[in-house]
């Protein structure tokens, strides 16, 4: 097998752009937390943008190559090394048969996306190789990679080393990240003052921050509007009759710690949501480390769609630069 896993890192998973279409059965889309970074990494090594790569969180794996390949690492600043030699991020570089790809300590961001020419060619499940560990789908036997695993690669389409995404087009979390939110869903369950406070407060990423969702702490508890609990909802003021959860939706169980659902979201449940992080800012969440101070910023649909167009233009510029 072309790539042998020597050490796996912390929670390194195989991810592509996910498996849409099964959310109504509780199977989330999964896929790279930072989708732009995966697309860019794939473009750098000549892969289709939706090829499967590795997503390493906080810490990189050690991988031994048994055939020549071209590799690119994007997303978090997790400096790659080949046989100990430092390599640039957001840039394609060669790894020869017998060489070992490893990583230095994390400098910024949270998740590095590692693309290998040919793409990882494990068996797809429901049309995707993305790892969804709770449902044991995709990945290697439905789980994160482990030491001793051997990862097959697909056919490379003529990748070249030394290509680079221009610095201006790379996107990191920045120093004071802001997440834009479209208020809605069950926003009416809290008072207007509580909603204003939510957007005024600073929120710190909690340690419970994973592919399912990101928890935040440090803001004031939300005050609810009084009500008679509807039949089936439950007695806590934050309860609703169990319903679907949008990706990016912000639930606040008991009004204390907001949770933003991400790519491996639970598809539904019984907590009210006050709004949804816009699609353009979802990648950014995947790059937030625990303890990062963030703010939620209110936007409207026009703002959300404009941000989405900016992101699409960013991706188009990367495509042009690497064409």
């Amino acid at each position: 097998m072309p790539v042998k896993v020597i050490t796996a890192g912390l929670a390194t998973t195989i991810q592509d752009l996910g498996r849409p279409g099964y959310y109504h059965l509780g199977i989330p889309v999964s896929g790279a937390m930072d989708r732009l970074a995966l697309r860019a990494a794939n473009l750098l090594v000549g892969n289709p943008e939706d090829a499967a790569g590795l997503e390493a969180v906080f810490m990189g794996p050690e991988l031994e190559f048994t055939e020549d390949a071209i590799v690119a690492v994007t997303g978090a600043d997790l400096p790659p090394k080949v046989d100990g030699e430092p390599q640039a991020g957001w840039t394609s570089f060669p790894v020869k048969s017998g060489q070992v790809l490893s990583f230095d300590f994390l400098r910024a961001g949270a998740r590095a996306l590692i693309a290998i020419s040919g793409g990882i060619a494990t068996t797809p499940s429901l049309g995707s190789r993305s790892t969804y560990a709770i449902g044991a789908l995709g990945g290697v036997d439905g789980r994160a990679i482990q030491a001793g695993d051997e990862l097959p690669l697909g056919d490379s389409a003529g990748a070249v080393a030394g290509r680079s995404v221009p610095e201006l087009l790379r996107r990191g979390p920045g120093s004071a990240p802001e997440l834009r939110v479209l208020p809605g869903l069950y926003r009416h369950r809290i008072t207007d003052a509580a909603a204003e406070q939510f957007f005024a407060d600073s929120w710190k990423v909690a340690s419970e921050a994973d592919r399912m969702g990101y928890r935040f702490q440090g803001g004031q508890a939300l005050e609810f509007v009084d009500r008679e609990p509807p039949f089936g909802a439950g007695s806590d003021p934050s309860n609703i009759t169990d319903a679907c959860y949008p990706y990016g939706s912000i639930q606040v169980p008991s009004g204390t710690e907001p949770i933003v659902l991400h790519r491996d979201a639970v598809s539904g449940g019984g907590y009210f949501m006050l709004g949804t992080v816009i699609s353009a800012d979802m990648d950014l969440i995947g790059q937030l480390q625990p303890n990062t101070q963030t703010r939620f910023v209110k936007t409207d649909m026009n703002g959300a769609l404009a941000a989405r167009r900016d992101r699409a233009a960013n991706l188009d510029a990367i495509r042009s630069a690497l064409a």
């Binding site: 869903l185 039949f231 089936g232």
Partner: peptide, 18 residues
Amino acid sequence: YTFGGDEHIFVEVDEEMS
């Protein structure tokens, strides 16, 4: 009817279960 960000529409048919 309410939007869940720019990619979802959420429709609460009723507050209570029936």
